[in-house]
Design a protein around this nucleic acid. Sequence first.
DNA 1: CGCCTTCCGGTACGCCGAGTACCTTGCCGG
DNA 2: CCGGCAAGGTACTCGGCGTACCGGAAGGCG
Lengths: 211, 211
Amino acid sequence: MVNDSGKPPGAGRTRRRGASLEEAILRAAVDEMLESGYAGLTMDKVAARAGTNKNAIYRRWPSRLALGVAAYRRLVTAVQPPDTGDLRGDVLEMLRGANRHWSSPLGAILRELMSAAGGAREFLTQLPEQSGDAAAAAWLTVLGRAVARGEASPEALHPRVATVAVVLLRNEFVVRGVPTAPDDVLVEIVDEVYLPLVRGRGSAPAQDVVK
Amino acid sequence: MVNDSGKPPGAGRTRRRGASLEEAILRAAVDEMLESGYAGLTMDKVAARAGTNKNAIYRRWPSRLALGVAAYRRLVTAVQPPDTGDLRGDVLEMLRGANRHWSSPLGAILRELMSAAGGAREFLTQLPEQSGDAAAAAWLTVLGRAVARGEASPEALHPRVATVAVVLLRNEFVVRGVPTAPDDVLVEIVDEVYLPLVRGRGSAPAQDVVK
DNA sequence: CGCCTTCCGGTACGCCGAGTACCTTGCCGG
DNA sequence: CCGGCAAGGTACTCGGCGTACCGGAAGGCG
């Protein structure tokens, strides 16, 4: 009835199915989210933009949040650990990268998603750079090189220790809600916490020797 | 019309005003939140339970979230820094306390509120134990005693350093979404990160001496 | 080559909850 | 005694998620 006059989608004339439709929906979701953030990502708008209807979406993603997370994953790329030649440089570089990301529109979206997930693990683990292991790897790489150079002690090669810096930075965003972390904060994290931590830890096995 | 048969609030027969009404609303909000969490805190239910109507609420709190935060603040009490006599004991004690809180129903509410706030500073700063300064004070106290005892180096008396442990713990909840942190995690945080950090930091001023 | 299953397109709707508008009614101060 | 302020009451708008239902295109299967 509305075959050729109603809406000229420009896409295939033939009715889309399966993967092709899924792709269209996801692209629509991505675009919507870039324009209006996750808050502005409504199922109706996505459906309209994809030239389909909510049914087709719900057949693939169980909820708005799931779609949002899927769309976000399209937008991020894994970070490469830098190699400036010294630990402080590497760490600062990574922190600055993270800070840029969190301060960017993408970071805003990420924060919205984390908010919406509200601690639901099944969603949190889908978010890159939140899913622990992946993020920890880059830090361990950087730290590994530093240990080889003698800049850090081998005991620091521990996920919990290696990622302390980003955790602190993330804390600024998530808990304090800053829009962007000033560079002094990054430097402070590195010089007051991270470097002393991975260097120092010399003498005591940290178990019982107190004095 | 419904003067004496409809709903027996038990409170004053006379129409409540000002502080008395405000109090009733807040109590209702607290009760609701204890029963169903922030998610279950609807303005209609609060109004009904307080024996009033949404108007009276909106005259006092601009939004549901503001009411939720106000109600939450009723529920929490400031923590006293422990004094076990040694740093490790104090720190573990505080971490365990924090862990208990985050794992408790109140902690669940707190997480919901943080979620709902979505990084809005005006709300985050209203949440006790999130508002930085307050929380930092207890840690500085504990650390101060440790410094006096010679268990920690004076450079550690820095808010960013002193609070590292809670930040790491909070990270478990907020980012990883765990319902409760196992005790080994707390011990690991203390022994692998916190104690080495506040003890060690010996030699280098961490500024330029790289090699 | 025609049927039949699948699943897309379209539309309409249910439901819930936040926030608003507007009037009525009672309390209190002058 | 009167006027105004705030509480009570009710109804409503608006947005948005998730569902239901139906007809019809695509494509597989015999």
